[in-house]
């Protein structure tokens, strides 16, 4: 019953609001894979997307606890409706010129973009859900991964 769930949380931009939300997750022992935050469609409000694992009941509890935070305006549980989930990932690879073509083949299959190329390195950008980015990393492992930066998933209902 440890399904992945997405909670979309609209918060007022107040000092410490992120600390309050993340503190709640850790204090109550909820399993959170990632939290992304950014501006929302409302002035002075941000939207936070938390990717969490747990049963429906646990998720309901997390949502109820979140709704109690004074700066939380609304919480919606995205997984109950069809949603789009995306994560941006940047990967720097150690690629000698000889292997560039092989790497490019992998990248094309995954519809990624090369955003920077150095004498022996390459930086690629991938956008997709977490599973896609994980799969890409598995294939790239052979090419010497130097650095990974992932945003964590953000999500929206269809």
């Amino acid at each position: 019953m440890n399904d992945r769930h997405y909670l979309s949380v609209l918060v007022r931009d107040r000092p410490g609001v992120l600390q309050r939300v993340s503190g709640l997750f850790s204090r109550r022992g909820y399993n959170i894979d990632s939290v992304t935050v950014g501006a929302s469609e409302l002035d002075g409000h941000s939207r936070l997307i938390a990717a969490a694992r747990g049963s429906e009941r646990e998720l309901g509890q997390i949502a109820s606890q979140l709704r109690k935070l004074i700066d939380v305006v609304s919480v919606s549980h995205l997984s109950v409706r069809p949603s789009v989930v995306r994560e941006l990932m940047l990967v720097r690879l150690s690629v000698p010129p000889a292997s560039r073509a092989a790497v490019r083949a992998v990248i094309e299959t995954f519809r990624c973009v090369v955003v920077d190329v150095g004498p022996a390195t390459m930086m690629i950008q991938s956008v997709g859900d977490r599973e896609k980015n994980d799969a890409l990393l598995t294939l790239l492992q052979d090419y010497g991964i130097l650095e990974i930066a992932r945003t964590g998933e953000t999500a929206m209902t269809r």
Partner: peptide
């Protein structure tokens, strides 16, 4: 103090 009391208070206002 707002950070310190965040888990043990209803709310904090600076």
């Amino acid at each position: 103090i707002i950070g310190i009391t965040q888990p043990v208070a209803k709310h904090g206002l600076f």
